[in-house]
Design a protein around this nucleic acid. Structure first.
Lengths: 339, 339
DNA sequence: AACGATATATAAAGCGCTTCCATAAACGCA
DNA sequence: TGCGTTTATGGAAGCGCTTTATATATCGTT
């Protein structure tokens, strides 16, 4: 059943070398024999072993991907769609390296190396979970997604988190809001940190007072939003608007607000982040930052492809713009604008 | 940098054979040399090439996955979480075979074979898209997800589509509904067909009249639900309830109903299918069938693992039970129960 | 006719590993 | 002590392919 290059050589009455040359269409084979061999290959439905070829060439036409937070990452599948397109375009298959064990001996690099992948994508959350340093220092081309890791052979791609939040805060400011609260994500995550930074910068640039009681530390979940809003409501001057680091957080905020008898957007304006499917179907539909996951996925494998093909150009960092999706969860501040 | 087994052998002062035996912990090596070799392996951070080993052993500890509808399948990522767990458990890595080209010469089998995978998962939609027959007839163990393909080396796993819809229809019947419409998905898809079949059976078993005007052919999208509901509303006896083949379809139905001034659930009961994230956050929250995607993913790789390890037991078909999630989108029928 | 240059084919080595087979050393037992 | 066994080790072939070096045939020049 499983044919190899020798069988073909025999059938065609040529050497293995010649068959190999035909497969890789090396010029030094006459078009006559080339045709004959090609015909046999077709007839016998022969397909060369990618694996064997990879072994000798050292190139496997395979990329590896590590999901350090598992596949349950909420946007994984969106990012993957973009990756898929780029994979098709560049001719790579993708190996999902599932066998991460979290022991100290485990090495991403070695795992990747053993699988003979030409480059790896790392999609994750927290910077300090795994031995990324080894990865960064290794020879193997790597692109990180949503982590600002950079090295001699490592680049990254991410959304423009800082600017996105600033846009959101400015928007609220234009709507006359002055008491703008912020719900963060985990502050030890790259995006969590940056979104917080965006809030800080915006508040500062707009000349608003920076009040720590308007900052709630959450973890991207609905529960953390709910809890945060409950706390905000205890304040003697509760915020009139809250910008969240995630849509799910915003959902929690809205839920708590409704429970307290507040109407969104009339009594409270809310802004999310991510633009998950749910966002546009909510009541009211959630104003939020739309991340271009497709581009993130697409560009990350293109970047990796470039890194593989041009080992000497330093790996870039790519910041993908977001779009601010204005929907129904924000309104002009009902309070007098306080000075 | 990249070490091989020969380097280790040299360092340890033993033969390549011995090193290999240590790696595979073959019994015929003294514990003394074994320890020494192991130590060197650790010191030199040597990791054997999976690829080379796969070449000689014919086993790659790799599974392949084809996504015939691409990664944009709405439940892909949920299913993958389940797969991931089973991959860890069984020790496989997963190769995403992205290079499907849709030309007639393209062969899933050959692609899989060239990549030396031990088995393949096929996750898709339509039965006739690709040359699945070749796959089914091939030697290579295959499990289909959401397709009823079965062969000497092919099994499948899917949700219990028929029964799930029957449960939904019966539930409506208990709520005194008698004019129960159905929104189908694509009828050339496996799940589309089965859900329709469930509706037919339920109607029949409940002794309700089977009315073709209560059947709308959709395609799982919101748009098709919207359109279907518009049509139902033209009827002189519009349905009092509609069961949908997808949650997104149900969203469309509800939207059309609201536009027509109907209140869900008071004037119209609606049931979805899938239990997407959105479902529980809608107003009213959507009553729907919850598919156990984790189990589907998990069991499909376990099944594949079994097929690989026991080549002689005929591949099974696994039907994973669903749970019916009662929420707020259904109410007792407001009309008199018609006889 | 003799020469080097060019085109075409192949043998053989090697990628990093496993495994069969042979060999050598250590052992048990009468 | 001598025999057959067991235990430990290594040589070499081979998995399916690519690639280098080499051989042979063909050709154009003068």
């Amino acid at each position: 059943m499983a044919k190899n290059i020798r069988d073909i050589a025999k059938s065609a009455g040529v050497s293995v070398t010649t068959v190999s040359k035909v497969i890789n269409n090396h010029p030094s084979v006459s078009s006559k024999t080339k045709e004959r061999v090609l015909q046999i290959i077709r007839d016998e439905r022969f397909i060369p072993s990618h694996t064997a070829r990879g072994l000798v060439k050292g190139r496997s036409k395979t990329l590896g991907i590590f999901l350090t937070t598992g596949l349950s990452h909420p946007f994984f599948s969106n990012v993957m769609v973009g990756m898929e397109d780029a994979l098709k375009q560049t001719g790579y298959d993708l190996m999902y390296l599932a066998q991460i064990d979290w022991s100290p001996e485990y090495s991403l690099v070695r795992h990747a190396l053993s699988r003979n992948v030409e480059g790896v994508l790392i999609f994750g959350f927290h910077k300090h979970d795994l031995n990324f340093d080894e990865m960064i220092q290794s020879e193997i081309p790597t692109v990180f997604i949503d982590m600002d890791m950079i090295g001699i052979r490592a680049g990254f791609v991410t959304s423009d988190n800082v600017e996105s939040i600033k846009v959101a805060v400015r928007y609220l400011h234009e709507l006359k809001h002055r008491k703008i609260a912020f719900l963060s994500g985990q502050l030890d995550s790259y995006v969590g940190k940056l979104r917080f930074e965006g809030y800080r910068q915006a508040i500062h640039e707009l000349g608003l007072p920076y009040l720590s009681e308007y900052i709630a530390t959450g973890d991207f979940t609905k529960a953390s939003g709910y809890k945060a809003m409950k706390a905000f409501l205890q304040l003697k001057e509760p915020p009139t608007a809250v910008v969240c680091s995630s849509d799910m957080g915003a959902v929690g905020v809205m839920e708590a607000a409704k429970e307290a008898g507040l109407s969104v957007p009339n009594d409270l304006s809310v802004i999310g982040f991510d633009d998950i499917e749910l966002a546009k179907h909510m009541q009211p539909a959630l104003t939020t930052t739309h991340q271009d996951f497709h581009t993130i996925g697409y560009q990350s494998v293109l970047m990796l492809n470039d890194m593989i093909n041009s080992p000497n150009v330093p790996p870039p960092a790519l910041v993908v713009p977001t779009t601010f999706a204005v929907r129904e969860s924000c309104a002009i501040c009902s309070e007098e604008a306080v000075q």
